[in-house]
Design a protein around this nucleic acid. Structure first.
Lengths: 212, 212
DNA sequence: TAAAATATACCGACGGTCGGTTTGTATCAG
DNA sequence: CTGATACAAACCGACCGTCGGTATATTTTA
């Protein structure tokens, strides 16, 4: 195996283990030693690949973001789908794109870690907004959306979605969470100036009863 | 001076100094020693009053939240003001309630501290939503607002506002920030089902050119 | 009311943890 | 052989929090 390949696999090994630990215990409460023990590598080796603990986090955030962007991009570029459906799909693809990420919402408190949250918020908003913007603009030209603030609307919705649904700190009952999701779709509808009920209807078709 | 009084003044001394340091350098980058040096007290004394660094932060968040709640409550309970005006005032009172807090938005990076952000987010959303709900319900009964999700709408708007305007990590140009503010008001308007342009108009009257 | 007993407020040295560095070594391509 | 890559382990210093002990009020007792 070539060295560079080995480096990449080594790096993603570290990344995988660190990610699961960060999700499990939170960034702050995961020590470098935890990562070393679980991965079986030595400190020198870890710091050969990553220059700091925060560096590892950044890479994890980026990798998660990449997946989401890819998914969103794929949706945005698909032909023959109306803008409303695309927008809903793109928004929903944010949450459950990663299996383990689901825990983050479920395992309360554990992930009450600010670092991860704020970094992924910034990452998602800055990198994903331009993609959702494409969808919204498609909707505007199709006449199903109406707004003079397409980019800002997307940014605001992304902020809200992330704070609401990817945050262990705002621990809520499943029933409340369900209402909040309905409300979010409803507000999205209004914010984008879509036909009253259009997105709500679509979302109910897409997930008739996904309340677990 | 009675001992209990002394304790209270001592605690608020610590709180004041810690708060200014946290705002200045961020929670993580402020050390306990920083607080000790600036306040002139000893370590043992500090840990007599507070059991941990995070404990101090929690108290600060709570105190800031208390101020905001008081302000919002005052607005909500005032008679003879229409719901739209109240809502705008309440939302805006969140940002500039504390003078120093303003820096938090301005001094980029310094406060890119996840702990403070996520804690104050949870605090604001959980404690402030019920108050804003009162205003929205007033608006509904006055016929100026229309929504079947009053509480959830408020929660979502608060999340968005906090993530957008109280977050150093999403560093934006003043011009962008201004557009975002306009967009936020616009979306609030639509989310609450208010008359198109009503809130925007009010906000322009209240702060014709508060740029900078 | 003065001494004794107790509760409250405060001090600073020390311990242990943790992120990060430095130094040393093995492997391998050229 | 030699330089670069990959890894290992001892080491460092910053930092949070603890602990034994002291000083200053407050209450109790005689």
């Amino acid at each position: 195996m070539k060295n560079t390949e080995r480096t990449e696999t080594r790096k993603s090994e570290i990344l995988n283990i660190a990610e699961s630990l960060f999700i499990e215990k939170g960034y702050i409460h995961t020590t470098i030693n935890d990562i070393l023990i679980k991965s079986g590598i030595s400190k020198g080796s870890l710091y050969y690949h990553y220059k700091s603990k925060e560096d590892i986090l950044d890479d994890i955030i980026k990798r998660i973001g990449d997946k989401k962007i890819e998914a969103a991009n794929h949706i945005a570029k698909t032909k023959g789908i109306d803008a409303q459906t695309k927008f809903l799909q793109a928004i929903f693809s944010l949450n459950s794109s990663d299996d383990r990420q689901a825990q983050l919402t479920t395992d309360l408190e554990k992930s009450s870690d600010g670092q991860m949250f704020i970094k992924s918020l910034a990452d998602i908003v800055l990198r994903l907004a331009p993609i959702l913007l494409i969808i919204v603009e498609q909707g505007i030209s199709e006449g199903v959306f109406t707004t003079v603030y397409p980019l800002e609307t997307v940014e605001i919705l992304l902020c809200a979605a992330h704070a609401l649904f990817d945050n262990g700190n705002l621990a809520w009952m499943p029933e409340e969470q369900k209402r909040r999701l309905s409300a979010f779709i409803f507000i999205t509808e209004r914010a984008l100036g879509a036909q009253e009920g259009s997105l709500t209807e679509l979302s109910q078709m897409a997930m008739p009863d996904e309340g677990e």
